[in-house]
Amino acid sequence: MKHFLMTAVIAAILTISGCAQKQEPTVPESFLTNDGNVNILWQNPSDYSDIEATIGLQSKFEQYLFTQLTDELGNLANKHLANDQQLDLTVTNVDLAGDVQPTFGAAANEIRIVSDLYPPKIRFDYVLTQNGKVIKSGSEQLNNMGFLYDIQPITNDAFPYERDLLIDWFKKTIMPAL
């Protein structure tokens, strides 16, 4: 009887521990952001060249990055797009300006060093539609090798170099098609 009871307890523990295994959180393969007439699908962010966070959680940093860039492009695009027009981007790669360097304990977090060795880059496909009909579409590989030589106003804006890539692209590529 004592042997049976011990076997039953061990079997119960093994059964419960098997059911209560910690599951890894599922990471979304893509992230969709929207601002008015602009939709951006950030496809497979884990494969991007460099969107490394220097502080906080990587997932929160990515959400902040994607939201900020969508808002910046949306602010401009929504002024120029008609109500029946839609701009959809599918971003396949982002390489933020600069490079994350470890501080080896000198600071609590790593830091991003911005130099002309690491220019901002964004690769995406886009489709501009009006009433469901395609007006313009294509693929882009944006980068700005001289990004540090451009005049930059002193602001607290997040991701100014990447924002400028998207804004310049919109003005040169999308606005003439409107």
Rank of each mutant, 00 (worst) to 15 (best):
residue 59 S to A: 12
residue 82 A to P: 04
residue 24 E to H: 06
residue 7 T to W: 06
residue 108 A to M: 14
residue 94 V to S: 03
residue 171 K to R: 04
residue 76 L to Y: 06
residue 83 N to A: 07
residue 145 M to G: 10
residue 93 N to C: 06
residue 128 L to A: 09
residue 120 P to E: 11
residue 12 A to I: 07
residue 118 Y to V: 08
residue 172 K to V: 04
residue 138 G to H: 11
residue 14 L to V: 14
residue 94 V to I: 15
residue 57 L to T: 08
residue 159 F to H: 03
residue 98 G to C: 05
residue 92 T to N: 10
residue 86 Q to Y: 07
residue 108 A to F: 13
residue 26 T to C: 10
residue 55 I to A: 14
residue 133 K to W: 02
residue 159 F to Q: 03
residue 147 F to Y: 13
residue 178 L to Q: 04
residue 141 Q to D: 05
residue 157 D to N: 10
residue 67 T to Q: 13
residue 127 V to P: 05
residue 85 Q to R: 04
residue 151 I to P: 01
residue 178 L to N: 07
residue 21 Q to E: 14
residue 12 A to L: 13
residue 125 D to C: 02
residue 100 V to P: 02
residue 173 T to V: 12
residue 34 N to M: 11
residue 112 R to I: 01
residue 165 L to P: 01
residue 81 L to C: 06
residue 98 G to Y: 02
residue 49 S to T: 14
residue 43 Q to S: 10
residue 43 Q to H: 09
residue 39 N to Q: 15
residue 146 G to T: 07
residue 114 V to W: 01
residue 58 Q to L: 07
residue 10 I to V: 13
residue 167 I to G: 07
residue 150 D to M: 12
residue 65 L to P: 01
residue 70 T to A: 13
residue 178 L to V: 02
residue 20 A to R: 15
residue 18 G to T: 10
residue 4 F to T: 04
residue 103 T to D: 08
residue 132 G to N: 14
residue 138 G to E: 13
residue 177 A to L: 12
residue 14 L to N: 00
residue 175 M to H: 06
residue 57 L to K: 09
residue 124 F to Y: 04
residue 139 S to E: 09
residue 166 L to G: 06
residue 135 I to W: 04
residue 11 A to H: 04
residue 14 L to Y: 03
residue 140 E to P: 00
residue 166 L to C: 09
residue 54 T to Q: 00
residue 23 Q to F: 14
residue 63 Q to V: 00
residue 176 P to C: 15
residue 29 E to K: 07
residue 149 Y to N: 13
residue 168 D to P: 00
residue 38 V to T: 06
residue 97 A to Y: 00
residue 146 G to M: 08
residue 131 N to G: 09
residue 91 V to Q: 05
residue 154 I to D: 15
residue 119 P to I: 13
residue 22 K to H: 08
residue 148 L to M: 15
residue 95 D to H: 13
residue 18 G to K: 08
residue 83 N to L: 08
residue 159 F to V: 01
